[in-house]
């Protein structure tokens, strides 16, 4: 655990991003998938790309969490 106050501030700022980055990763994944489905391929591939990119978004969210949890400097 960090012992001095500067490190605590730095870690607080970093870990305060966790929640938002999880939510926004999922939404951006869904957004990209929806755009590809409905604008690029005109709904021919609907709903598969949305679902696939939802998976990518969830994976990105969990990768962020995993990176945060497996940091060496804690």
């Amino acid at each position: 655990m960090a012992d001095n106050r500067k490190d605590t501030l730095r870690l607080l700022a970093q870990f305060s991003t966790v929640g938002m980055s999880v939510a926004f990763s999922i939404f951006i994944g869904v957004g990209i998938g929806y755009y590809l489905d409905h604008k690029v391929f005109d709904g021919r591939t609907s709903p598969w790309l949305t679902l696939i990119f939802l998976g990518f978004g969830v994976a990105a969210a969990f990768k962020n969490l995993y990176d945060m949890a497996s940091r060496k400097d804690l």
Partner: peptide
């Protein structure tokens, strides 16, 4: 795609 999505989430 995972890395790109997490950069856009920033």
């Amino acid at each position: 795609p995972i890395e790109l999505i997490s950069h856009f989430a920033r």
